[in-house]
Design a binder for these strands. Structure first.
Length: 500
RNA sequence: GGCCCCAUCGUCUAUCGGCUAGGACAUCAGGUUCUCAUCCUGAAAAGAGGGGUCCGACUCCCCUUGGGGCUACCA
């Protein structure tokens, strides 16, 4: 009987969800889906100092919003955190007695020991080791304490931690990483890791191993930064006498300078990208391709979550880190926006809080209507990189007053007279059009195109500037269609006044 | 400093011993065009260096170099 594949994403709720974490969660999700396994979300809140209120809720919300669904663990229901699954609790701060119980087993078998060293002593030790160009490491000072001495300190209430007793004789710790292959580290290079902190909370190392075991995790997919602590975890599994899970260390997401993707060099939170108007599908697609690719000579770049699930294979995951190139994300986001229907695009724009932006503040009631906004979006769809750009370069859609220099109306070296003629011609043609004719973009375009004749620039440039007041904009046909007859004629009239 | 990991165009990547090294983003040039964008066409752009192994190495091994991660009572 094959064991059910069980994987987990175990973030620490310290604020926002990092795009790198999202990628780790995504790969876990894809792997579980592909293997017909179970995906667990466990919250690792063992650091009381870094507790951020609301962070867990935020984490769950974003993960769900991105479509990275899991089967067990912590969920949000009506804004309240709940837990589902038979191997809970899934929040580590609710599992304290468990860690206590398991670490006691280590104590009983001399795999772990009490350490009463003060922070100052540790610091001096480290400083000295560093000065002597030695690797900073705990010197096993408290391992020498007799049972009585330990009891005496305990009785006095001396603050203490529990450490793992790493025996150098253990030699080489070797494991076969699913991404990186064979990795080996010498036991003598491993520090006597703190397992229990003086506040009674476990460290990541202890909690992680105990929970992965109790939650029957079969595959540990996590970022490369965890590579150096894997041997410590293996030692813990050994100390408990537990079977090892499979490890897969995922390549890091990098800054343009190749260092680990960090806040200092740009946005790292999923929320930031969402707020900037990136579509969740684009973001998921983009990060999926950072460190993985379907191989087999495939040149496909656009993948839905379903397609990713079908194509994903851990064997194709890279070893080297990948630079998070926003330019490529921009392109991909544009691709996704172009594929959106007008209704969808509008819904997304509303959800993105578009209509709360400043650009709307001078708009008329009509210009704020759904019909009008959809017309704007129809014009802008092909040129949008992000949702939040809507209107950014086209403020003229949302204002009654255009302010621009009248000389902008002149096409190349045309005279004022020629410009006036062009505008009057446009005014005359447009004023004769029926409202119903405005409704059809093609009709409007054909009429104006015909009127433009041979020297199109003479006619179209002044018209476009009159309608937009801008040097660059969509074509006059499109702008006229969005603005409507009344507004167009008003703008033409204003333009003519600028000429006198 | 120590330990570990990594290495194909600027960036993301294909290639799993036969390569005239393919694709995408970005860049540049041209086309379409009233402007901008879209769109279309094209160009430039890579196997870090040195040793092996092999009939043959980008692909396998070793060394060097370079980059990165870790080195907490943070995860």
């Amino acid at each position: 009987m094959e064991k059910t594949v069980r994987v987990r994403f175990a973030p620490s709720p310290t604020g926002q969800l990092h795009v790198g974490s999202l990628r780790t969660a995504l790969y876990n999700y894809l792997f579980a889906k592909k293997q017909g396994g179970v995906f667990v979300l466990r919250v690792e809140d063992t650091d009381q100092k870094r507790f951020v209120s609301g962070a867990t809720e935020n984490l769950v919300r974003i993960l769900t919003e991105m479509g990275v669904h899991y089967d067990e663990g912590v969920f949000l229901e009506d804004g309240i955190l709940i837990q589902k699954g038979t191997m809970g609790p899934y929040i580590q701060s609710e599992r304290l007695p468990l860690y206590q119980e398991y670490v006691q087993k280590l104590l009983d078998t001399d795999k772990a020991y009490y350490c009463f060293c003060s922070g100052e002593r540790l610091e001096t030790l480290r400083a000295e080791q560093t000065k002597n160009k030695q690797a900073p490491r705990y010197d096993k000072h408290c391992l020498a304490l007799s049972r009585d001495e330990v009891q005496a300190e305990l009785a006095k209430g001396t603050p203490h931690v529990l450490r793992l007793n790493v025996l150098p004789e253990r030699g080489e710790i070797i494991w076969e990483d699913m991404v990186r292959g064979r990795i080996s580290i010498l036991a003598k290079d491993i520090d006597d890791q703190v397992l229990m902190k003086s506040d009674g909370f476990p460290t990541y190392h202890l909690a992680n191993v105990v929970d992965d075991y109790l939650m029957a995790i079969t595959h540990v997919l996590r970022a490369e930064e965890w590579l150096p602590s894997t041997p410590k975890h293996i030692l813990l599994y050994e100390a408990f006498g537990w079977e090892l899970p499979q490890f897969a260390h995922l390549p890091l997401l990098l800054n343009p300078d190749k260092s680990k993707l960090s806040k200092r060099q740009g946005d790292v939170a999923v929320e930031d990208y969402l707020a900037k108007g990136y579509l969740k599908e684009a973001l998921v697609n983009f990060i999926a391709l950072l460190g993985w690719n379907p191989g087999q000579g495939s040149t496909q770049e656009i993948f839905s979550l379903e397609e990713l699930t079908a194509a994903f294979d851990l064997a194709q995951v890279h070893k080297a880190g990948a630079v998070f190139d926003v330019k490529k994300l921009d392109w991909m986001n544009g691709e996704y926006i172009k594929k959106l229907s007008l209704d969808e695009l509008y819904a997304r724009a509303v959800a993105a809080g578009l209509f709360k932006k400043d650009l709307i503040k001078n708009a008329s009631a009509e210009q704020q209507s759904e019909v009008y906004m959809k017309r704007v979006l129809a014009i802008e769809r092909d040129r949008l990189v992000t949702l939040s750009e809507v209107g950014d370069n086209n403020l003229f859609f949302f204002t009654g007053e255009l302010s621009y220099d009248g000389t902008l109306l002149y096409w190349k070296h045309n005279t004022q007279e020629m410009t006036r003629e062009a505008l009057e011609k446009a005014e005359s043609i447009l004023s004769q059009l029926l409202e119903s004719e405005w409704e059809k973009r093609e009709v409007l375009e054909k009429i104006l195109w015909d009127a433009a004749g041979e020297k199109r620039g003479d006619f179209l440039w002044p018209l476009r500037v009159a309608l937009t007041g801008a040097e660059r904009s969509p074509s006059p046909f499109e702008v006229a269609w969005v603005l409507g007859k009344t507004e167009c004629l008003k703008r033409l009239e204003n333009a003519l006044q600028k000429l006198s």
